[in-house]
Design a protein around this nucleic acid. Sequence first.
DNA 1: TTATGTCATTTGTTATATCATATTTCAATA
DNA 2: TATTGAAATATGATATAACAAATGACATAA
Lengths: 239, 239
Amino acid sequence: MIAEYDTPKVDPASKDLLGAVDRSPSLTDKVYEKLRQGLLRGVWSPGEKLTARKLSRDLGVSLTPAREAIMRLVNEGALDVSEKRTFRTVDLNCEQYSEVMRIRSALEPIAVELATPLFAEEEIKRLIELNEQMKEMISQERFNDSLQIDSEFHLLICDRAEQPLMRSIIDTLWLRAGPTRNRLSYSYRKRLIGYENHKRIIAAIQLRDAAAAAAAVKRDLSEGAAIIVAVLTEDERDN
Amino acid sequence: MIAEYDTPKVDPASKDLLGAVDRSPSLTDKVYEKLRQGLLRGVWSPGEKLTARKLSRDLGVSLTPAREAIMRLVNEGALDVSEKRTFRTVDLNCEQYSEVMRIRSALEPIAVELATPLFAEEEIKRLIELNEQMKEMISQERFNDSLQIDSEFHLLICDRAEQPLMRSIIDTLWLRAGPTRNRLSYSYRKRLIGYENHKRIIAAIQLRDAAAAAAAVKRDLSEGAAIIVAVLTEDERDN
DNA sequence: TTATGTCATTTGTTATATCATATTTCAATA
DNA sequence: TATTGAAATATGATATAACAAATGACATAA
């Protein structure tokens, strides 16, 4: 009878009907989500300082949830805490960026391999749509937007793989690289390599050829990484 | 002149001499570390409830650092927060455990590949030592200790790869699987598969054969995973 | 005995207070 | 003008307080 506490007696039918109450996210969660979005969208430039107090003032919450959200991002490596204990967005150097890409290259091919048989036709259409949007953004020189769409494309594939842990790891990788990526977008310009590679990925998924899809993802990532690393290397030589 | 704030004027030589001040870790850091160790050593059984207040009382700190540390572990997936917002250690089911191993299998071979040329002779000796200790622990049926040593073995390799981000990801994987692993240790018993596989890994490193080392790690992980998954499957059928 | 309703306690969440350290300001001085 | 240094301010870390939701204990009714 003790176990009854964990599974209170409820008529299965009504339980199904009611479903679980959707507890509203805590303030910490909301602040965290805002920070996340901001980081991905390039609201802060890499290396920019953040303070818990300003954040709490800006968002109209107390210090606690603001601070908790920041700490959470710090823990994920999306924010740095300097030796003086101030918070700033990360600015990846070439080596650090390479490591992010090395890990993505290890994980995302597996994700697409698992995802390939699970994709529904309409989801594939969505991939095509996203890729065309990306092309459009690039042609309009809206590079930050194109990066945004690129991330959506890759994350949609990861979602389909139904590997929640892997997905969360890849999420934090994007978050970590976000500001640096955004800084680069103007140097990165006008490259349609991503577009062509994405087309290859889509084609492989349509043929339900998991191995080919994995190879295409790997190629997309390594070519993309090569460009960014080149830009970063140049940057580091410059200053 | 504005930029001066980011890089205070310090004679580079003296900077090198002094090094950064080693700011003592915060209370949050200390609590976090205690929790971490506890999780790895099986202080809490999987699914056990934790409360921030009890933790703060036990460790003689206020609620804030205790809570922050818990939230940090939640964020890493080492603790769960239930729908009722209570904290408990994770209890991975077979599928979740498999996902952890799938990710380890993707990352650790890369790590050992990068580490192989960087290993010093004495570090290889340390690997041998650890492996023999593990064998000893198993023969004494001290399974939890043997798991502890197994983790040291793998993490030492990851350290040598000098990929800090990858290392931190693998760290969280261990943390996540820790309680479940510890619960299993008695079913897991007397398997010397790990020992033999570790010997293969060491041999490959000694020969500086990175590819062979990667293959050996992959084999170690997949055979280890197979056993645990078998036990977990049985468990899930039982209850 | 078992189910149910009430009330005290515990817990997570958020806000606020306190303290030590960092940073900034700005006037006095060389 | 450039430097210095003390006072004012801002900030992160920690503690405590306040509140609502969840839990547990217990008395009462079936």
